[in-house]
Design a protein around this nucleic acid. Structure first.
Lengths: 226, 226
DNA sequence: CGACCCAAGATTGCATGTAATCCTGCCGAG
DNA sequence: CTCGGCAGGATTACATGCAATCTTGGGTCG
C-alpha cells in the first residue's frame, strides 16, 4: 500500500489523523467501550483504522500521558485499570481544584453564564426524572463541572481539571455504584449553583469542595475494601 | 547515514533517544540556554544531535505539552515566551496545590523527612550567604518545593506540580527580579518548615499558600504593567 | 510431571522517504 | 513606492522499513 493512494487533495487542514485517533480512542475508553485492561496494540489499531502506526503511536502516547492508558513494555498499551487508592488521591487533588474553579468562576460570573448553568441543571434534572442510564448521568455530571471550570478563566486550571475528570471518569464506570449517586450529584450541583448565583465566591468554593469530598467518600464506601 | 552505524549492542535498555533529547532540551530551556522565542526546528535539532527526527519530534511534543514550548504552525516549535498574565494564573493554581501538598506532607511526616527538609534549607542558606547567582537560588527554591510535594504521597499532585513548577521556572528567568526575592523565599520556606515540624497541617497549608501568594504578588510588582 | 529452552510472533524505538502546505524574499506591474 | 504573485526553502504529518528485544506456546530432557 503505497502512500500514493492518498489522492490529489482530499485532506482537510484539520484532518490530523493523530488527533482523530486520539479522540476516537479517548471516547471509546470513556464510554467504556474499551474496558480497563483492554489491550491496545499500535500496529493492530493502525490496521483497524486504516492508517499507519505513526499517528496511532502518537495518540496512544497522549492517552498514556492522560492516565487513560498504561504502557506495558513489549505487550502494547492497555486501557488503565482503576485503582481505588489512585482514584482517591485523584479526588483529593480534584477537591482543591474544583473549589478553586468554583470560586474563580463566581468572581467573574455574568448573567449569560448563570443562564447556561441553569440550563445544564435543568437538563440534568430531566435526565434524572426520565431515569436515564448511568452513562447519561455521568455525562450530565461532567457537563456541569466542565461549565464551571470553563468559567474560571484560568487556562491552566481548565487543562488540569480536564485531565483529572477524564481519569476520574474512567473510574466511575467500574466503581461508582452508590444507589443515589445521580440524585445526590444533582442536589449538590444545585448547592454550588446557588452559592454562585448568590455571588458568594467563598460559599461556592466550599460547596464545590464538599461535593467532591462527598463523591470521594461515596467512592470509598462502594469500593472493595482492598 | 544508514541505521547500520549503530553497532551490535551498545544500546542500554534505558537509552531512549527521545527521553534523552527531552531531558536535554528541557534542561536547556530551564537553564535559559534556550531563551523564550528560540526556534526549535525538529530537522535542525535532529541533525545537531546526530539522531533522526522521530525521537526529536516526540521530545518536542512533550515539551509543548509541558508548556515549555509552543507550536507555531509551519514555522517549527519555539521556546514558550512567558506571558505575565499566564504566569499569574499559573500561580493561582499553584497556590492551591502547594498548600495541599504541604498539608498532606505534614500529615505523613517522619523524622527522616524532616531532616531532609532541614538539609535543604541549610543548603539554601549557604547559597544565600555565599551570594550565589540567580540560577543557584532558583534551584534551591525548586528543591524545597520538590521535596515537599514528594512527601505528599500523592502521585497526581506530584505530577501536576512538577509541570507547573517547570513552566513557572521558565518565567522566573525573565520576570523575577525582586531584589530581595532569594532572601524572602528562604524566610518563607522556613515558615512552612516550622509549621510542618510542629505537626500542624493547617498551618503548613496556610504558610505554603501564603508563600506562593507572595511570589505572585512580587511577580506582578516586578512585571511590566502590560 | 515440572523445569528449561527454543522458535515463532509481536512490539518498540528509531531512521527515513514523501506529498502537501506554508513562509519568505524578490521582482515586476501598476 | 507599493501591491501582488511567484520560485525556493522549510516544516509537517504520515507512511514504512528495520533491527533489537521480549513474550509465548510448545516440545524436550531430567
Amino acid at each position: 500500500m503505497s502512500t500514493a493512494y492518498r489522492s490529489v487533495n482530499n485532506v482537510a487542514p484539520g484532518s490530523l489523523l493523530a488527533e482523530r485517533a486520539y479522540d476516537e480512542l479517548r471516547a471509546a475508553i470513556l464510554e467504556n467501550r474499551l474496558p480497563p485492561g483492554t489491550a491496545m496494540s499500535v500496529p493492530a489499531l493502525a490496521d483497524r483504522m486504516g492508517i499507519s502506526r505513526s499517528p496511532v503511536r502518537e495518540a496512544v502516547q497522549r492517552l498514556i500521558h492522560d492516565g487513560l492508558a498504561t504502557h506495558v513494555p513489549h505487550r502494547g498499551a492497555e486501557v488503565s485499570s482503576v485503582d481505588v487508592e489512585d482514584l482517591r488521591q485523584l479526588y483529593v487533588v480534584r477537591e482543591s481544584l474544583e473549589g478553586l474553579a468554583a470560586r474563580l468562576a463566581t468572581e467573574r460570573l455574568d448573567v449569560a453564564a448563570l443562564a447556561d448553568l441553569e440550563g445544564i441543571l435543568g437538563d440534568h434534572a430531566l435526565v434524572l426524572a426520565e431515569g436515564g442510564d448511568e452513562g447519561a448521568h455521568i455525562r450530565q455530571d461532567m457537563l456541569f463541572h466542565q461549565a464551571i471550570r470553563n468559567l474560571s478563566g484560568n487556562a491552566h486550571l481548565i487543562g488540569i481539571l480536564d485531565r483529572i475528570q477524564g481519569k476520574a471518569h474512567l473510574g466511575l464506570h467500574s466503581l461508582w455504584r452508590h444507589p443515589h449517586a445521580p440524585r445526590l450529584a444533582l442536589e449538590e450541583h444545585r448547592e454550588i449553583y446557588d452559592a454562585m448565583s448568590a455571588g458568594d465566591p467563598e460559599a461556592a468554593e466550599r460547596a464545590a469542595r464538599n461535593h467532591v469530598t462527598r463523591l470521594r467518600v461515596r467512592l470509598s464506601q462502594s469500593a472493595p475494601q482492598r
